[in-house]
Amino acid sequence: MTIGLTHYLILAALLFCCGLFVMTTKRNAVGILIGVELVLNAACLNLVAFSRYRVGTIDGQIAALFIIVLAAAEAAVAIAIFVNYYRMLATIDADKGDELRG
C-alpha cells in the first residue's frame, strides 16, 4: 500500500477532531491551548499534503511555515495572559473566572 493524499487528509481530520474534543472538554487553560495547537497542526498537515499531491506549487508549504510561526506567537500571548490570570486568581482553570456574567 502506498501512502497517498487520502491518508494524510484522514490523519489531519483525526487531529482536527481530537483538537476540537480537547478544546471543548478541557477546563484547564493550557489544555485548551494544546487543543488549539492540534487543530493548527492538522491545518498545516492539510496544506503540505495538498501542496505535494494535488497542487504542485509550494505556496501551501509556505503557508504551513507561516502558520507554525503564528502558532508560536499565539502561544506566547496566550501564556502571558495565563500568567496574568494566575497572579490574580491563583488558578488557570477557565471555569473559575466567573465574575463577568449576565
Partner: peptide, 14 residues
C-alpha cells in the same frame, strides 16, 4: 481585565 483577557484569548484562539 485578567478574566476578560483569558476568555477572549481562549475564544479567539479556538
Amino acid at each position: 481585565g485578567a478574566e476578560a483577557a483569558l476568555k477572549y484569548v481562549m475564544f479567539g484562539a479556538t
